[in-house]
């Protein structure tokens, strides 16, 4: 599978598809090939990847103890009633 040369415009246009893993292996390889050779596009890709990672990290928040307790209580009730389904 030999990579196809893309222009910077083509790479930037598909950058989020690439970061979101929406491209097929050939398309992803084309982007990677370009990024390994183009400092400007690589810098942009790295910026968007860092921001994307920071957004992903907002999906982890300490669960409040009352929620943990609520779930234990719910499971206890199921245990007591012997209900599974």
């Amino acid at each position: 599978m030999s990579p196809r040369a893309l222009s910077c415009e083509e790479v930037i246009e598909r950058l989020f598809d690439y970061l979101d893993r929406e491209l097929d292996p050939q398309q992803a390889a084309d982007i990677e090939w370009h990024l390994q050779r183009c400092h400007d596009c690589f810098t942009r890709a790295e910026f968007e990847r860092r921001l994307r990672d920071r957004v992903a990290a907002t999906g982890t928040v300490k669960a409040p103890p009352r929620l943990q307790q609520r779930i234990r209580t719910l499971l206890d009730r199921f245990d007591e009633s012997g209900t599974r389904q």
């Binding site: 982890t60 928040v61 300490k62 669960a63 929620l67």
Partner: peptide, 24 residues
């Protein structure tokens, strides 16, 4: 998984009480 479940629910709902309801 609890912190990720709650965090994801919180991002989706924007509201701590709703997030707890969804997780429960």
């Amino acid at each position: 998984l609890m912190d990720r479940l709650y965090g994801t629910a919180l991002r989706l709902t924007r509201n701590p009480a709703d997030a707890e309801d969804i997780v429960a």
